[in-house]
Every structure is written in C-alpha cells, then in structure tokens.
C-alpha cells in the first residue's frame, strides 16, 4: 500500500513548524534577546546565544488546540561553576533583566520562562520562551546547566553536567542520507502530534524530546526502490518505530518493590539520564497501551485497500490535520465503458 504516502506528506505540511517560517516566533525571540542584552547586569562577562529545542532540530510541530508555542533559547555564560557556585545567582541575572518588562517572567527549576498572550487576531495562541542558563567556561572544559528556583536551598539547586550543543547536533545529524533524515523528522513530528492528541491534559505525558531521542535508536528509514529512486513509506517507518519502542519495554522493580514495565530513553549526551524517569509505573503502562493501540491502527490502515477508509482510521489517530480524500479524489479518471449483452445461468 504505497498510496497513503501523499496523505502523510499533506499531514506533515499541516503540522510542521519551522521557526524561520514563523515571523511572530522569530520576532518574539529577538525582542526578548534585545531586552536581555539591554538590561542584564553582567558587566564582567558575556554570554553566547544558542538556539535549542525542536525548531532547531527540525522536529517542531504546531501546538495542538490551545497549546502554547514554545521557544527554547540557551544562554552559555562564560563563567565557571567555581566562581559562581550558586546556579540561582546566574539565573537571577536573566530573571532580573526580563521581569520588569515582562510581568509573566518566572524562574522555573530548569529555566527562566517568559509567557506572552497571543496578539494576532487570527491566531490568539499563547507563547512562551524558555531560557536555559549554562556555565560554559570551566577548567574541565564541560558545560553545566543551572537548576534551581528563587530561594532554593543548597539541596534544591545544582549545576548539572550537560552538553546541549552536542545533543542538538546528534539529533540534527542523525542518519547520513538527507532523504532518510527527512523521513526521520517527519515520523517524529507524526508521533509528537499523536502524543499531543492522545495525552491531552495527562500529567507527566511522554515528552517530545523523549520521543525524538527514542527515534535515535528505534527509528529506521523505510523505503523501496523504483529503479534508482527511493520511494519512502512513512506508514511502515512509523509502524516499525512504534513496534520497536513497544519491544523495548522491560520489567524492573521500583522503589516500592513492585514490578513495572518501563521504556527507558537515555539522553545520548550528559547527564545521560532516562528522560522518562519521572513517569510512574501506571503512566508507563498507559503509555504502552497507547503505543499498542497506535500500532494496531497503523496496521489496520495499511491493510485497508480503500484510501478513503484508511485515512479515516488515521484521522482518528492523528486528528483533523490528517486529510481524508473524497472517493472522487482517491480514484483515477477513466473513459466511459460500453457494455455488451450477456446472460448468466
């Protein structure tokens, strides 16, 4: 069934979000960076700006329904954790520079967040920009992420070993063939939209970065050859990616001595932690059930010969942005038929 590919590609066009295509996002980011530069009380040093997050890795999707647009900016300060032992002190430089101009500035544990109300009439979504703050001039040559909130005691704040640039590079440069890479990015985007739809208002839902990193090990490009041209099959690629994730769940004993079926997705860069470590056993169970249901729907769509019906199945999985053709649109046009007289017995 190769003929669902065009519908997947239309779906991809409908959900993909590249920051370069979105003027509002770009302007918000630049505006905040200008304000930061203007107001920051940091005479003694400088910082480098580094764009991270899904838009940079070409895995961004438009927010679903009332979701926010989120923009991630890394600030690499040329300071050492020895000179600045308290990470919150550094985070405060950013927080203080922005809080007077933007009342919705908040210091969260891993970042400083600024929220905006949507201004555009046709798209009144909200935006938020997450600034993550790093110490980038250390004797050991490593980068550390500032974690902690205003007033956090020394137990609740830390400089965490991190390598954000390497993480972005690893994801951006996953797979050597540029067309394979495009399929990787498309499939990640399909899954992220599925996640936004199926885990609506679920606490601790599987994060987009978790699905993206899972793709580094569990995704393989799927295509066939038509002479010298690769014909990509996103449905197959997605189905096998989902199946590989399901197969990688394994049982382990939790702190309460109970068995849990978990999917571990380890960051390929420091601190190498399991991105899904915060999900509870029952959240994991729910995640697996939803993956299994996704796989079953994908199989059902693949086995369905009528693209109209197959796309209806896929629209249930991915939401209204997945197109369903009319019967007319799904068929070839042919000339009239002139029948002959005949009988049966």
């Amino acid at each position: 069934m190769g003929n669902l590919q065009s519908y997947f590609l239309s779906f991809h066009d409908a959900i993909k979000l590249e920051i370069d295509d979105n003027k509002v996002l770009r302007e918000k980011r630049e505006e905040l960076l200008d304000v930061l530069k203007e107001n920051i009380d940091f005479e003694e040093g400088k910082y480098d700006i580094f764009h991270q997050g899904s838009y940079t890795m070409h895995t961004g999707v438009k927010p679903f329904e009332d979701g926010d647009y989120d923009i991630d900016v890394g600030l690499l300060f040329n300071i050492s954790t020895v000179d600045y032992p308290n990470p919150v002190t550094t985070k405060k430089l950013v927080y203080n520079a922005l809080k007077d101009d933007y009342e919705n500035t908040e210091m969260k544990y891993p970042c400083v967040t600024v929220k905006f109300e949507g201004e555009d009439d046709e798209d009144d979504r909200n935006y938020h920009v997450d600034f993550t703050i790093y110490s980038n001039e250390n004797i050991d040559g490593q980068t550390y992420l500032a974690k902690g909130k205003l007033g956090s005691g020394s137990d609740n704040r830390t400089w965490e070993h991190s390598d954000p640039k390497e993480l972005v590079r690893t994801i951006k440069e996953n797979l050597t063939d540029s067309e394979d890479r495009k399929q990787f990015r498309r499939v990640i985007r399909y899954l992220k939209r599925w996640k936004d739809l199926k885990f609506k208002s679920v606490v601790n839902r599987p994060s987009g970065i978790g699905l993206t990193v899972a793709g580094l090990t569990h995704f393989y490009p799927h295509f066939s050859y038509n002479a010298f041209t690769k014909i990509y099959d996103d449905l197959d690629a997605l189905e096998s990616f989902v199946q590989n994730m399901i197969n990688s769940f394994s049982c382990r004993i939790n702190d309460d001595g109970e068995w849990e079926d978990r999917l571990e997705v380890n960051l390929p860069t420091p601190p190498y932690n399991d991105i899904y470590e915060k999900m509870t056993g029952s959240q994991m169970k729910n995640f697996k059930l939803k993956l299994e249901s996704l796989r079953d729907s994908l199989k059902e769509a693949r086995d369905e010969a009528d693209p109209v019906k197959a796309c209806e199945i896929l629209q249930k999985v991915f939401g209204q942005d997945f197109p369903v053709p009319t019967k007319k649109e799904s068929a070839q046009q042919r000339g009239p038929a002139i029948m002959v007289d005949n009988s049966s017995a």
Binding site: M1, G2, N3, S6, A305, K327, E329, A331, Q332
Partner: peptide, 13 residues
C-alpha cells in the same frame, strides 16, 4: 468502482 490513484488497487463501491 474506483481505480485507486497511485496504486493498482481497485475498490468495488
């Protein structure tokens, strides 16, 4: 019925 676009599938509708 239909001869499905981009395929050799046929649907009797």
């Amino acid at each position: 019925g239909r001869f499905i676009e981009d395929s050799d599938d046929i649907i009797i509708d």
